[in-house]
Design a protein around this nucleic acid. Structure first.
Lengths: 117, 117
DNA sequence: CAAGTATGCAACCATTCAGTTGCATATGTC
DNA sequence: GACATATGCAACTGAATGGTTGCATACTTG
């Protein structure tokens, strides 16, 4: 829940944030180690400003945090925020696990019938 | 990996498919029970054609399948495809679980030190 | 079989988006 | 302190997107 909504603040949710392949790649890059915009940009063929734009979006979605050290800014992945996707996925995980269990039960019953012959 | 890319076929990946709130709502709607476009559209304030468009996108991304019965088409969620998101999330799950274990270990050590006083 | 119902697609429109260019500000170095 | 480096933002552009309107096709009903 955000305190307020501006025309550009928090206008995207986390799913919109990860929809872009470049942003997913940035997330993967900084997953284990915070990195600076220049260090991140070195891994892409686009401009540094394009990467900076993506970092702003990820920051607005609270997926990353900034940590300034002199003129360098370190962007760190807020791993806890990724749990929001996991929590959303939980409802579907229950469904596919439920179906897997149903299949497992069916297979067991079929095996039992097989053994009774 | 798709066999080929057309200007509109499979041009979105599953993350782009779930980026739109309406499509996520459609997914939730048909998660347990296949539904027809009209039945789905009854839950939204947009036009039936807008819903139809979203269903096409979800179909192209292999998130749903179609099952025609007379003039009615039943759209069913391909729950297995949702695992693709889970698989992508696995790399981050390992990170937050690892950090949780590190925290747990630290707490245990602190408790041991507490007991030695 | 005419009328009703279900459904998708093309064209259009306004908005959003991703990347680029240009520029400004802040920090570090020599 | 001049110069180099790090970084973000505004403006622009072309492409993509989501919703609407109009229309066509297929199936159902009376």
């Amino acid at each position: 829940m955000v305190a307020y909504l501006c025309p550009f603040d928090m206008k995207r949710d986390i799913f919109q944030a990860i929809a872009d392949p470049t942003r997913r790649a940035i997330i993967a890059l900084i997953a284990l180690q915070a990195m600076t915009p220049n260090a991140i940009a070195e891994n892409f063929h686009t401009t540094r400003q394009a990467v900076s734009k993506h970092l702003r979006i990820l920051t607005e979605c609270e997926l990353v945090t900034q940590e300034q050290k002199g003129r360098e800014i370190y962007y760190r992945l807020k791993i806890d925020k990724m749990k929001e996707i996991d929590e959303w996925l939980e409802q579907y995980r229950k469904i596919w696990e439920s179906r897997f269990e149903q299949l497992d039960t069916l297979l067991s019953e079929l095996k039992q019938q097989e053994n009774m012959r």
